[in-house]
Write a protein that binds this DNA or RNA. Structure first.
Lengths: 239, 239
DNA sequence: TGTGCATATATAGTAGACAATTTTGTTCGA
DNA sequence: TCGAACAAAATTGTCTACTATATATGCACA
């Protein structure tokens, strides 16, 4: 026999489902304000506590924003709502850095190839801006970590694939968090900022020329360098 | 001036953070039972309603399981806890099928190559089992959709990369949901089950021979077929 | 014209009660 | 001794009613 366990649905789960359906059906768009907690409680014929349980869950999932004294608003279903929980959960696991980088190589190598074929002028501009920021950082003696992330983010956006953009963000966000948690400093030691900068320049040039094969190759070379440093760090520190 | 907006942290968020830290520090392992809601309320010096808001959010995120009359238990941080919210959010968007398939091609093509290099005997067995189920379905005149998913899942697992496994699941889960929502029936029409079956056989053979290049090629050919059907469906139905 | 205050409305959080559910203990009969 | 039935305890599920705090807005007043 194939008997499934019976689970009585909790009220807050049903409220969540109903609100979700309203969003899917388009009756609630991002930015819209939900009725007040008391209103909802009356309309659903439940207590305000149940409504609040549903709303706080929805808020943690990034679907609504609760502004005290104002109301509850539908958030734009954007990157963060998916990225945050992923990074959040993954950060609880150890030894995922290597796996993370493997996935990043797989994804980003092909993403940059797509970007080379699809990048619009404004994408190229954003990439150039990020590169400029990287150069500035370099000359100021800063690490340029942020500009680095900005560049890779711009690449993902140039690919014109929203899901790719999300996944890339999830990956790099998680890597970032994970590196921070394990106190690995990939940027500080043994890295020549000039080399890093040059690698990015090559990538941008390839994208500008719409040469997807070159773009892919340079990106993989760049990530291989990151991997090398990561492995060296691990072996030297016996994590 | 660069003044950041002040946001007061809500009580339930702080409770969540504390529980999360306990999990990270290993003081709470999966399967462990949390103190009762009343206990937690006393220990945190907050009301039970606030504790419940935190717990219901944690439950929706898949981090704990609340069993009424029993207590709250730490769930194993597994695939679903990450996959579900992703699929959940993505399912609210339209016209993501094409993008989804593009990402799937990127990921799964390389995943199967990894699988070819890393598959353990039990992975091969699982793949063969899935294939067998597909054959059975075929001969019974069934669609074999489930066996299909099982095969692709097994491929991801054979890659030995947990994150990849997660992402693959998120993607195929979302595709599945999305197909269902738009009532696209990829399987019913214009598909020769025999051809589908053969494509999978080729993939498994390549994996068994540890030929990653062939595995990748066959997988991409298979997915190209899926894409073709999807595009044909779109053009014929003017979705 | 605005500045400041009162007020209405919203969320944030608390306290306490009772119902529903599950586990556990206990009694009693064969 | 075993087992079924019942009782008790513990826990989550839900509700009501209250206070505190935050925000927007309209109005009086200079």
């Amino acid at each position: 026999m194939d008997l499934k366990p019976i689970k009585t649905k909790k009220i807050y789960e049903e409220i969540i489902e109903q609100i979700r359906i309203l969003v899917i059906k388009g009756e609630l768009k991002s930015g819209d304000r939900l009725p007040s907690e008391r209103d909802l409680a009356v309309r659903f014929n439940v207590s305000r506590a149940s409504v609040r349980e549903a709303l706080s869950a929805l808020e943690m999932m990034g679907l609504v924003e609760i502004r005290s004294g104002e109301g509850t608003f539908i958030k734009e279903v954007n990157l963060d709502s998916v990225v945050t929980p992923l990074a959040w959960v993954l950060s609880m696991e150890k030894d995922i850095l290597i796996e993370l980088l493997e996935v990043r190589k797989m994804l980003e190598g092909q993403t940059v190839a797509l970007a080379a074929k699809r990048a619009a002028p404004e994408d190229l501009r954003e990439l150039a801006d990020a590169l400029k920021a990287m150069l500035d950082d370099m000359q100021m003696g800063r690490l340029g970590e942020e500009a680095d992330m900005r560049f890779h983010y711009a690449v993902a956006r140039a690919s014109k694939n929203k899901i790719l953009l999300r996944l890339m963000n999830a990956i790099s966000d998680t890597m970032h968090q994970s590196l921070k948690a394990s106190r690995v400093r990939l940027y500080e030691e043994n890295v020549s900022p000039e080399r890093l900068y040059k690698e990015h320049v090559f990538i941008l040039e390839a994208i500008t020329k719409q040469n997807d094969e070159d773009a892919r190759r340079y990106m993989l070379e760049h990530l291989a360098g990151v991997e090398e440093r990561l492995l060296r760090y691990y072996s030297s520190n016996e994590v």
